[in-house]
Computed example of a mutant assay.
Amino acid sequence: MEIGVPKESKDQEFRVGLSPSSVRVLKESGHQVFVETQAGNGAGFNDDDYRISGAEIVSTAELAWNRELVVKVKEPLVSEYNLLQKGQILFTYLHLAADRKLTEHLIDSGVTAVAYETVEQPGTNRLPLLTPMSIIAGRLSVQFGARYLESQQGGRGVLLGGIPGVKPGKVVILGGGVVGTEAARIAVGMGAAVQILDVNVDRLSYLETLFGSRVELLYSNSVHIEAAVKEADLLIGAVLLLGRRAPILVSRELVATMHPGSVIVDVAVDQGGCVETLHPTSHTNPVYIEEGVVHYGVPNMPGAVPWTATQALNNSTLPFVQQLANSGLKALEINPSLAKGVNVQNHRLVHPAVQEVFPDLVNS
């Protein structure tokens, strides 16, 4: 099969869909891989690295897109809509619940769009292609939050770890899944006072085995959220509902009660965000101030560490890419996990969770 790897076009998105080592594996299986020139530069892979691995370097995005299977990292942007082709398989992160326009264009194009974030292992609720980026985003959320708490960055000047004689900063994490757990690991390591709120009591029990008394674990309800958010120096949104928009858990009124210069990092922003005042930003302009609070809303946070993130992503995606390359659409019949990743096929919106978000598009 011919596989295309375009250069990512999202602002400062330096990850790449396939690493040179992944290209070599696919080449050894008899597939042809076409990589847009400089697609891997930001992740530390130059064109020669890809040539040595057996890829053909192409000079334009069109030449990379004009293939049976296109492997990317992030969703197509408006500038790429005209490159979508009927009968093509697109394998990438999509997060359609937060992007009606893209959903409509994918339906119109006739592509089979398989989203990394909805590939699911049946019966386990595990999302194997979302997990590595969630780990990275969770860890980065505290790293970035600590940075923007610095007064020179607009923050209130709090050192999360404190020092003897001065209390540490308070980190509040909404959601105890992969993102929330990894955020807590870093925050605890820095010496912060940490709270995690989640609606799953079993998950809270599991987190107790990880953190013991180092993290305060609370059932997530409006009363507990309100009390925690008011005192937070750093608030991290880590809510995930598979394929759906994140629920708004923090209202504008509640944000207004936070300490001036406190920081919000909402990792759920690519699914709409769980904080009313937060909207998507970019690596070029990552923050803004609303109600006196610093808001960080970059939806592709792992793009800040592309060398690590590209390899972590490829470790998880390569087996699925191989199946699609070897068997085409029959791979969806062979592998139930991969089938669950299909969001759009045959001009139809097919993923149940995304259908709930856009019911009027189901029969369009």
Rank of each mutant, 00 (worst) to 15 (best):
V215D: 01
A238H: 03
E276S: 08
R252L: 13
G169R: 00
V250G: 03
A184W: 03
V179Y: 05
G261W: 03
N285E: 15
G237L: 08
G272R: 06
Q271G: 02
T181C: 09
T257D: 10
E208F: 12
L242R: 15
T209C: 08
P164S: 15
G243Q: 05
L204S: 07
G261F: 07
N285P: 03
L278Y: 00
P280G: 00
I173R: 00
E253G: 13
L197C: 02
G273T: 10
A232N: 07
V223W: 09
E182P: 00
E276G: 07
G212D: 09
V199T: 12
L197I: 03
A184Q: 01
A193H: 14
L174F: 07
M190V: 14
A193V: 10
G189P: 10
V178K: 08
L235P: 03
V171Q: 02
P280E: 11
V172C: 06
K170M: 12
I264T: 05
G175T: 08
F211P: 00
S282H: 03
L218Q: 09
N285V: 13
G212N: 10
I225H: 08
I236E: 01
N221K: 13
V267C: 09
M190F: 12
S262I: 08
P164C: 14
V250I: 12
V223L: 14
P168C: 13
D202N: 14
D233Q: 13
L197D: 00
F211Y: 12
V201N: 09
L249Q: 01
A232M: 11
Y219P: 02
V239D: 02
G261T: 09
Y219V: 09
S262Q: 11
A246R: 01
T257Y: 04
F211M: 11
L218C: 07
V250M: 04
L235G: 00
H259V: 07
T284P: 00
H224D: 11
G177D: 04
F211K: 05
